[in-house]
Computed example of a mutant assay.
Amino acid sequence: MQLKKLLLAGLMLAGAGTASADPSIPAFGFETTTGFLDDGAWTCQGSAAGNNTCSMNFGNLNGNGSYDTLAWGTESNPDDSQSFLNITNIVGSIITNGGWVDINYFDHYNHIITNAGGNMETVNISGLFEITSPISVGIPGVNSVYFDETTNMNSVNCPGPNPNGSACDDIFVTGGLNGSAPLFCDGGGCYILSFQFFAGVGTTIVDNGDGTFTIYTTEACSTDGQAGCGAGETYAPGFSRLITQARIDYIVPTPETLALLGLGLVGFAMRRPRKQ
Score class of each variant (00 low, 15 high):
L11A: 06
S126V: 10
S126L: 10
G209F: 01
N110E: 08
S240F: 05
E121R: 13
A269L: 10
N86D: 15
A71I: 02
L261K: 03
S20E: 04
T214A: 07
N143S: 09
T74D: 00
L258S: 09
G230F: 01
F184E: 00
A181T: 12
V252D: 12
E233T: 09
T257N: 00
G179S: 08
I171E: 11
G59V: 08
N57P: 08
D249W: 10
V137H: 13
L260M: 08
G262M: 15
Y235V: 03
Q2M: 06
N89M: 07
T257V: 12
Y146W: 11
F239H: 06
G73C: 05
G187P: 14
S136L: 05
Q45L: 14
E149Q: 13
N104T: 00
F58T: 11
I243W: 14
G46D: 00
D169P: 02
G160E: 01
L11M: 13
S83L: 12
F198T: 04
F30H: 09
C44R: 04
S76G: 05
L260I: 01
C44I: 08
F172M: 08
D249Y: 11
R272T: 10
S47H: 15
C54Y: 08
I25M: 06
R272V: 02
A116I: 15
Y191M: 09
F30C: 08
A19K: 09
G35C: 13
I113W: 03
T18L: 04
G40I: 05
V266N: 14
V142P: 01
D107K: 01
S222Q: 10
A236W: 02
S126A: 07
D68M: 10
T32L: 02
T43F: 01
T151S: 14
I248K: 10
C221N: 12
P237R: 15
G202D: 13
P255V: 11
I125E: 09
M1Q: 00
F184D: 05
G225D: 07
Y146A: 12
A231R: 05
A14L: 14
T34V: 03
G35S: 03
T254Y: 05
N104R: 05
G188V: 10
D224Y: 01
L260D: 04
S76W: 03
C44E: 01
A181Y: 03
G189T: 06
C229V: 03
Q2A: 03
T69H: 10
K5V: 14
F268G: 08
T151A: 13
A246Q: 11
S180A: 15
L13D: 14
T234P: 03
N97F: 12
I215L: 09
L11P: 00
C54P: 07
Y216K: 08
V145A: 12
Y146N: 13
I25H: 09
G228N: 05
A19T: 08
E31W: 03
G264L: 05
N119Q: 13
I192W: 06
D224R: 08
Y191W: 12
M1H: 08
Y216I: 06
N77E: 01
S222W: 04
A181L: 15
